[in-house]
Design a protein around this nucleic acid. Structure first.
Lengths: 351, 351
DNA sequence: TTGAAAGCGGTACCAT
DNA sequence: ATGGTACCGCTTTCAA
């Protein structure tokens, strides 16, 4: 199997307790003894047994707070959180998932302050990157580790971020759009919210990649859709009515189902390319029926379960995440794979 | 944390040994006692602790044989195998990865026969679906569980298959090609090998999806490329020379780097769409420089590590895979994400 | 400074 | 048919 602490102890002529102390630097160990133990470890290639470690670690349970808005947008991410919760139940990890956590700066900041009164061992959150939240998180991060998921916070000392590189995702979308419109043409970039960094980064990446491929007339001063399908319907309808030469539309997020509906109602679906992001049910529907051409997802499930894993390893095993940002994949979906489920390594179920 | 066997035993007024026997049906247990234990388990919602189970199970190590050709095509799959090996080292799983396992029926059958002389607890293999291999595997499968990965065997009682749904992947490629050639045109399907079921399925899916989108003239009687880049270069050059109206090429596998080179040399790269499969280095290169438009990968890493997980769970925990086929994802890559690495849940490294 | 021993949850063997 | 106990590898406490 592998070398155990017991074997190291025997080879070094000491007890298991001493080896443990030497490894972790807790308690006093005679320098010579330590030297010898380390030599034996090196020679035998000792690797700690993570299973045994986990069994032991479960004796000191940790409580993690999960602050993720419970909107449909985060449904898949929350499924990832639940899967990780199930998996880590026997590892002494307890999750407290906030109900009614809202996508609103003041509410989030208040929530964080309330949290600091109870005991928590770590915070996992999808936060709004606004001053009030940044400040509250900075304060919390002084005491406990914070991992951001899906959306990051700028200038805050969080342990790690798990989410998409939106600029790169935007580029991938722009590359596809360019290949679908080889002859150039008018392409509109429809903003969700100009306050959302993610949306702006997607737009920037899209433009950059598209313009590398040819002459396109980009329409950038389109009205924001917000999160509203109704609003998006109007915005896109207006666009379709006013631009008879429109060849492509890139949504940056928010109201994509409404945009699809407007395109379908105009009778120009299939003729005008429609690019989306993520896999909200309405978006998926438009991909399936051909109104939208492709969508770029970001593995929200992983954005939910990976932070739990990272937090467990940090708290229970003392292992830092390797990187400060972990990007989830740029997941291009068309009609034929938009509904595909993937095998999940945690639960063994579909995701 | 959770209910333990010890607690169940106390509540039922018996010993832990009895509870264990009642759960697993080994040894004799008084029906009344069993009834009572089961009731307590139901009421408390007992869930066995997988960590403790694993620690114990490591006492009875298992040896798995991995028969995967060591060609570049399987490099990523083998990296997955290695990652799983590392992860499961402490679970009492030992892997024996065959060196010089070849993509050749007679050789594979011989290998399997040799294997049956040594002791093995399970076989993981990427096999050729030809009679000699089928027969040898059928024979081996009588004694030990067999999991196929990447390529399946027809009519063999293997435990499970982990790989891509090639027809669906072909469809996705056809859908993309159609969107990139909205005005129709001549599209060639270049076969790798007509003996490879995967290649034929890709071709069939591609045709189906493409034809749903418009009028295309499909060129289907193209010569096979085999696995040879040189051959593929010739085949594609011939195609380019003879078909001045060619608008798209779909490779089904094998020699894709050669095909890209031929297209690049012809000076018509960018003008003619080129669709590929998988992410061999040569293919990736052509995607990056724009000669090829997209490639469809199949998560080879998962095809390597998942079989090890399934085999461990089957042998050590007595858990059957949920499905007979587990499809890995249809992973569309363009220039901007073709080199992306993903976080791997097993090793915590990139893959 | 070091050793001995108990315990995490589950399994397996030996006694009874 | 059932109970008691030892063990997996690691950590932690208590005693020396």
């Amino acid at each position: 199997m592998g070398v155990t602490i017991k074997q190291i102890a025997e080879l070094a002529g000491v007890s298991r307790g001493t080896v443990d102390r030497a490894i972790h630097g807790r308690g006093d160990v005679n320098p010579e003894t330590k030297e010898k133990i380390e030599r034996v470890m090196r020679e035998t290639g000792y690797r700690p047994n993570a299973v045994a470690k986990a069994l032991k670690a479960a004796q000191n349970p940790v409580t993690l707070d999960v602050l993720v808005p419970s909107s449909p947008f985060y449904a898949d991410l929350l499924r990832g959180v639940r899967a990780a919760e199930e998996f880590y139940a026997h590892y002494g990890v307890r999750l407290r998932v906030a109900e009614r956590f809202e996508l609103n700066g003041a509410s989030q900041a208040a929530m964080l302050r309330k949290l600091s009164e109870e005991h928590t061992d770590g915070i996992i959150m999808a936060a709004l990157d606004v001053p009030a939240v940044r400040e509250a998180v900075s304060c919390a991060a002084e005491k406990v580790p914070v991992i951001t998921c899906n959306s990051d916070l700028t200038g805050v000392k969080r342990l790690c971020f798990v989410g998409q590189d939106h600029f790169a995702a935007g580029r991938a979308s722009g590359t596809l759009m360019g290949k679908m419109l080889p002859q150039g043409g008018e392409v509109a970039v429809v903003p969700g919210s100009r306050d959302m960094l993610a949306h702006m980064q997607r737009a920037a990446g899209f433009r950059q990649a598209l313009q590398e491929q040819g002459e396109y007339e980009l329409l950038l001063d389109v009205r924001e859709t917000g999160e509203s399908d109704k609003r998006a319907y109007e915005v896109v309808k207006e666009l379709l009515d006013s631009r008879k030469n429109l060849a492509g539309i890139c949504m940056t997020g928010g109201g994509q189902a409404g945009a699809g509906a407007a395109l379908a109602d105009s009778g120009r679906a299939g003729e005008i390319r429609l690019a989306c992001y993520d896999t909200l049910p309405g978006t998926v529907e438009h991909i399936k029926n051909g109104t939208a051409d492709y969508t770029i997802a970001q593995d929200p499930f992983l954005q939910g379960c990976l932070p739990v894993k990272l937090m467990y390893e940090y708290l229970a095993l003392g292992k830092e995440p390797g990187r400060e940002r972990i990007f989830t994949r740029i997941d291009i979906r068309v009609k034929d794979n938009v509904e595909d489920q993937e095998y999940d390594m945690f639960t063994g179920e579909d995701r």
